[in-house]
Amino acid sequence: MSRRNSVVIALEEAAAAIPDGAVIGIGGFVTTNKPMALLRQLMRERRKGLTVVAAPSGLEVDMMIALGMVDKLITPYVGAEAISPVGPFHSKWAGRTFRVEEVDLGTLVTCLRARFQGVPFLPVMGAVGTSLPELNPNLKWLDDPFGGPPVVVAAPVEIDVAIIHASQADRYGNVQHRGAVFVDNLIAQAANKVIVQVEKLVSNEEIRSAPTETTLPCEFVDAVVLAPYGAHPSASQNYYQLDEGLMKEYLRAGKSFLQGDTAPLEGFWKKYVDRPATHCDYLAAVGLDRLFGLGLEV
């Protein structure tokens, strides 16, 4: 009898599928469900020339900008809400070290839909009358063939590799968020390859016991990586809240860097990115006390 193949791979192997210059799609939402373990591996290897297509972003995109990894950015937001309304490097270096193709969430959703629907463009009302068409070559004005006012249309955005964090998956790549999916389903559908890191690997029986919880069926998933606490320092639905302290540590170091004192940020990279050779080494560097203290009920 033939056997179904597992799609579970090591983190390092997953990262190796993302070359310099790739277009990557990042899932999650602001400070929740960011695929940090995979992104940290890319940071460790200093991937270059990336085009980043991302759901509203937290500080992970800012870190990638700080490390000089990003050439082009397509995301509706970079910041950490009240912890930091903007990302320090995103705010200082936009247009200087990387290009921005301006979108809001509705525009991003439209670009992704156009991609997987196989249409040359779709109208997006949110861009009408805003600066988005001037600030994004993928947006153009078009006369309404039905006689209404002109509309803005969005061209498809193609993603080479989508990187997503979710609660659990089985060995065949059936993924369950067990919570909000944010834009992850669209990013996955618009991508040529999809890698999902999960807090927990579960049996196919467990997935089948709650098939309505499956948010990304295995058709949409090429690889699964086991990464417990893999969203840290962002929050992970059902598992832990965000690590505000570590985010503030990064923000302090980043601000010092931009004021001319490079040492704190170099120390931050050394401690959290370069010295830990593996994801487990990273978790050890953060410390179990700290990680276990991030329960959802505080």
């Binding site: 509203p56 995301t75 509706p76 937001y77 970079v78 910041g79 309304p85 903007v86 990302g87 705010s91 301006e102 979108v103 809001d104 969430l105 509705g106 525009t107 997006v124 009302m125 949110g126 861009a127 805003t130 988005l132």
Partner: peptide, 8 residues
């Protein structure tokens, strides 16, 4: 920080 969801 960017437009977030506001435009649409």
């Amino acid at each position: 920080p960017g437009s977030v969801g506001t435009s649409t």
